[in-house]
């Protein structure tokens, strides 16, 4: 079975890209599955089911979805193997920009859209920097110049990624992504594989449920901004 991890900011077009990729790959019905990692709610399963793609959804609730991802990816892979999939895709909505659900040796795709602001690629962090492929959506509504500058900004952060423009509505560009997927490695287990990037060194009192504001409630790993010398 091949495994691909797809991540990207909310509403960037991850589901659209995955659905167009599935069309371009023309995999036999039922031989490809999706696991969606989200925080609170998701309607994506309707769209996958509509296309006959088996889907499982997991909600991280009060955890960071990427921490949640790491603790559930092995289970997802086992589900895929038992279901006899040729391809398993995970879709996660990266939220904190510091996480990235990418595993060494597993094809990783970051989906980002052209509307999100020209400097966004420079701000996204590991989710973009550690990806093998950066899929850029919504190019159909911005100018060529903006697409080129956007790609330039992506290349600054991740010079070795393959940048693919994909129209999530018409599927234009999905064939290029499909070629990358065809070359992706086969896996039989993820036991002892490693993440490409550490998840944040959090665990402060707020991680564990503290809601009160004030120094005396702050414990664990904390980081303070400097306001010294600024006008008061």
């Amino acid at each position: 079975m091949k495994l691909i991890t797809v991540a990207g900011p909310p509403s960037s077009g991850k589901t659209s890209v995955i659905l167009k990729l599935a069309e371009a790959l023309s995999i036999e019905n039922g031989k490809m599955g999706v696991v969606k990692f989200d925080c609170l709610t998701s309607f994506d399963h309707f769209r996958y089911e509509e296309k006959g793609i088996p889907v499982k959804t997991g909600f991280s609730g009060k955890l960071c979805p990427d921490h949640f991802f790491v603790s559930n990816i092995e289970g997802s892979v086992n589900w895929g193997l038992h279901s006899g999939f040729q391809l398993l895709i995970t879709e996660s909505a990266g939220l904190c920009n510091r996480c990235s659900p990418y595993i060494r040796g597993v094809l990783s795709v970051c989906v980002i859209d052209n509307l999100s602001g020209i400097n966004t690629p420079r701000k996204i962090g590991p989710m973009m920097k550690m990806a093998d492929v950066v899929a850029v959506t919504k190019g159909d509504i911005v100018s060529q110049a903006e697409r080129e500058v956007f790609a330039f900004n992506i290349r600054q952060v991740n010079p070795s990624a393959k940048i693919i423009f994909i129209n999530g509505i018409t599927g234009q560009g999905a064939t290029i992504l499909a070629k990358q997927v065809q070359d992706a490695a086969e896996i039989t287990s993820l036991r002892d594989s490693r993440l490409r990037f550490t998840t944040p060194a959090a665990v402060c009192s707020y991680c564990t449920g503290e809601t009160r504001i004030g120094e005396e409630y702050q414990m664990g790993t904390m980081k303070k901004m400097e306001f010294k010398g600024d006008r008061v």
């Binding site: 052209n114 509307l115 020209i118 190019g139 159909d140 509504i141 911005v142 100018s143 060529q144 903006e146």
Partner: peptide
């Protein structure tokens, strides 16, 4: 490079 009627500047 592509040019189409739907394209706008967003920057």
């Amino acid at each position: 490079a592509q040019l189409s009627q739907n394209m706008n500047f967003v920057m």
